[in-house]
Design a protein around this nucleic acid. Structure first.
Lengths: 209, 209
DNA sequence: AAGAATTTAGCACGATGGTGCTACAAAGGC
DNA sequence: GCCTTTGTAGCACCATCGTGCTAAATTCTT
């Protein structure tokens, strides 16, 4: 037998190459040849682990959604003790939401990949299920953040949970979109300031202006 | 001479064909051949009005930005009399911002095209200037909306204009993004409700819940 | 009616893309 | 040492794409 190779690890390496190409040149340039070159592999080698080109895309997107989704779920676990002061809660909420913004290099990369895939999925049936899953999971995270805020007493009274969920979700994704598309006009500090402004408004005791 | 043809009108027809292809199949499928077929023209015919493929893209995006920008600017003109009641002002603001959301078929189409171009411009130097222009113009519209709200007395006191501009802008674009990418999960009413919720918060007298 | 310019049509070439298929290399079991 | 399995490499084919170029069709002007 040849070199022992973990096929799953190989596939993930290829997926990483897809991400790099998508970020640098756009997802439309993630051809078999370009991806193989980016991964430092021969075309035939890549094809040994994937049935075809669309399988690469599907795997890459699934891999991305899995990773991002898992990391989001960690934030649902790592919530502070119920009797912690509201300020502490708000800080944890802000950290969870910051995970969705391109605030540093790593999260910028992830946001760029997210945008490429999620937009592509609009016109690609084979990718849409994963985009929907990520959308639902993210929305769920935000809903849970708001629910936790309410339980901890940090949240303002009289807010409609559904509307506030969509409002916060839209705000975060809008910031992410702007941060990725116009990096020169919206830097990390501005994104943070905007997010904190919003949180300060719906969680008045944490008004940190 | 052959049929008298207005070259500019022809170019715009081609641009419209680009929009249709981009919405249906994605901008990456807006090839010379596909666009020509969509426009009901022969390839050579299209090429008579454009120097090359990238010129088509550039013209199409410029055409889109011009149209969208002009329509946005109309809303800056059509503001109510300064002495109109604040509620009237808020209604006008909401109408201006609704122009940016996929609330009906026409604006949905426009939002889909906007997303395709604006995302593509991230990795295409030749399109980026137009994306930046549209970004700036839209941000300006929102800044002006907030400034007008302040003058009319509808806006809450003590708000930072820059932060509120970015917050409202991110909210609107986030809603537009979600509305276009997840049409089944965020309908027009939900978008309207979310926008009005936000406006009601920063313009307290128009609280329409 | 004739000529001329504009518009339309399309061939041909090279580049790039996905994919079927074959050939070779490597390494563990016998 | 040999064979079998797994991984690597790549050729060949067809489709699509942009583009240079040529040719035909059309209709206005004279």
């Amino acid at each position: 037998m040849p070199k022992k190779v973990d096929p799953e690890a190989r596939r993930q390496e290829v997926a990483e190459a897809v991400f790099r190409v998508a970020r640098r040149d756009g997802l439309e340039h993630a051809s078999l040849r370009n991806v193989a070159a980016e991964a430092g592999l021969a075309i035939g080698s890549v094809r040994h682990y994937f049935a075809g080109q669309s399988d690469i895309m599907i795997f890459a997107m699934r891999h991305f959604v899995d990773r991002a989704g898992a990391r989001l779920m960690e934030h649902v676990r790592d919530r502070p003790a119920p009797d912690a002061p509201p300020d502490r809660h708000v800080a944890v909420f802000a950290a969870a939401l910051a995970e969705l913004l391109p605030l540093d290099a790593e999260r910028r990369e992830e946001t760029e990949v997210w945008l490429a895939f999620t937009v592509s999925a609009r016109t690609r049936d084979d990718l849409r299920p994963y985009a929907e899953r990520l959308y639902d999971e993210t929305r769920d995270l935000i809903r849970k953040v708001l629910a936790a805020a309410e339980r901890s007493g940090a949240l303002r009274d009289g807010l409609d949970p559904e509307v506030e969920t969509e409002r916060l979700y839209a705000l975060v994704d809008g910031l992410a979109l702007h941060g990725v598309l116009q990096p020169g006009r919206l830097d990390a500090d501005a994104m943070r300031a905007t997010l904190h402004r919003h949180l300060g408004e719906i969680m008045p005791r944490a008004d940190d202006r």
